[in-house]
Design a protein around this nucleic acid. Sequence first.
DNA 1: ATCACTTACGGGTGACGTAAAAATC
DNA 2: GATTTTTACGTCACCCGTAAGTGAT
Lengths: 287, 287
Amino acid sequence: MIETYLLEALVAFKDYRTLSAAAENLHISQPALSRSMQKLEEILEVSLFDRTKNRIVLNETGEMAASLARNILQSQDEMVTLIRNYDSSLHTVSVGSCAPGPLMELGTVLPSVFPDFSFCSSARSEDELISDLLKRKYSFIITTRNINDERISSAFYGTEHLFVGAIPAHPLSVYRDTGISFSDVNGENFLMFSDVGIWHDIKEKMMPDSRYITQDDLSNLSTLVKSSSLLSFATDLSLRLFRGDENPERIYIPINDPEATVTFYCNYLLSTRKKLEPLLNYLSSRS
Amino acid sequence: MIETYLLEALVAFKDYRTLSAAAENLHISQPALSRSMQKLEEILEVSLFDRTKNRIVLNETGEMAASLARNILQSQDEMVTLIRNYDSSLHTVSVGSCAPGPLMELGTVLPSVFPDFSFCSSARSEDELISDLLKRKYSFIITTRNINDERISSAFYGTEHLFVGAIPAHPLSVYRDTGISFSDVNGENFLMFSDVGIWHDIKEKMMPDSRYITQDDLSNLSTLVKSSSLLSFATDLSLRLFRGDENPERIYIPINDPEATVTFYCNYLLSTRKKLEPLLNYLSSRS
DNA sequence: ATCACTTACGGGTGACGTAAAAATC
DNA sequence: GATTTTTACGTCACCCGTAAGTGAT
């Protein structure tokens, strides 16, 4: 059998084209690498290089061998992360979401539904979430659409509605009951949380002329908003979660456009259904 | 990175269920294997076993890790054969066939078409041939149908017609020009070569009531046939190839059923087209 | 002269085997 | 008592680094 370090050596040589460069990158001496390549040829009973006195180049067989070796190493890497993820999936419940709202809500819900759990911040794209779900990095993920994959099952999670926050003196505050449209505030400056996931794309699309002053710390943002007359954002979820320590000096105006309402779905691996049943029961009882 | 011997150890343990049994199979001592398993857990930062004082069992994570490890090892094996086959494909031309006729014919043709070459006997099923072609064990294969795979290209090779050999005194010999049908000789005893590839299925299907006395050595079979009054087989290919040392005491009666005629195709990997061009030119010039 | 590779040589890590202890059946 | 696993310890393989040699640019 071929030990992994030999495959790593071969791949490094393919990448760096000379033994010296590859050896340096592998943090071993150049003669050591030279011997490894010889050993690999011995084991395979095949010559992998064209050698001249002071030059060594992969031959046709060597090139293909290095490609195959790279695949093996990648498979090994994937194996390691799969094993680690699988292990932690037995001990914790981790969540990925395309928006922070459901994540914050779940933060209050999960501890009562599951004994112990861990949290994960929202990733960028839904594709990344799906890929990480398949690798079991997440126990389940929150997305805005049902996923078309036979290994994955989906359940309705809930909706989130966007509001604009403003000081009472703001002219728009008269619309606090009737609501406004994105176009009414397109061009205005906003204070907002930086990691809003899918809302990022929505605001960019619906209010391309606005400027957004972002803040990646929620409590700092809150302080900032209290002291400012700039517009801000909120959602029904965030308003419900932070009821109590919300700013009494702010009023929240609903946005009427359909794009201001997002529907979330909870997606999980079919094979983990049993483990997640408490959550699924909770979700269906809620709706 | 995880060295291969650790993965082998894990897989062996999964297969043999105890360290002692697995160690014996791996030809190492049992304490050595015990340490390897500990080391693997260290590297993965995950526990793979449920341990009691004198018993060690794979836990859930361990079971899945062992499965993944088995896949890696299999990939490695495949890599090694791919590399070896690829290397030899650069030095030799090897042929697989579903029947011996084209193989014998090619034995006389290939040396003049290719500088150096090697030979392979006919494999059992066409599926095996295809699989070995994809692994580059064969440079090209002879089958009875075009193969539906985008990596493989096919060319017409030729046909082979089956004859029944009999002594002149045999009552069927009057049909030497008009031919007979399988049903006319179903139930008769035949002397025949054992490794006839696809012809095996044909005779079983068309003459299920006959008995076949097989011989795996061609020259022994020839001696046997000369001394016997039993029926035998021949084809247009074999008669052409062995013209000269054929038995003058035998006559050959054609079989008229369509099943007695087989059409062969030459299949090769698209990526090797250039190498095989001399052969393809020869084939198209022949037809 | 510098660079790149191979061969030669000595050293240290670590994987191995033997031995012993503990625990279960 | 037999089996199975773990720990302890000494040994040896083997992989590595340094040094030296050869050939090419």
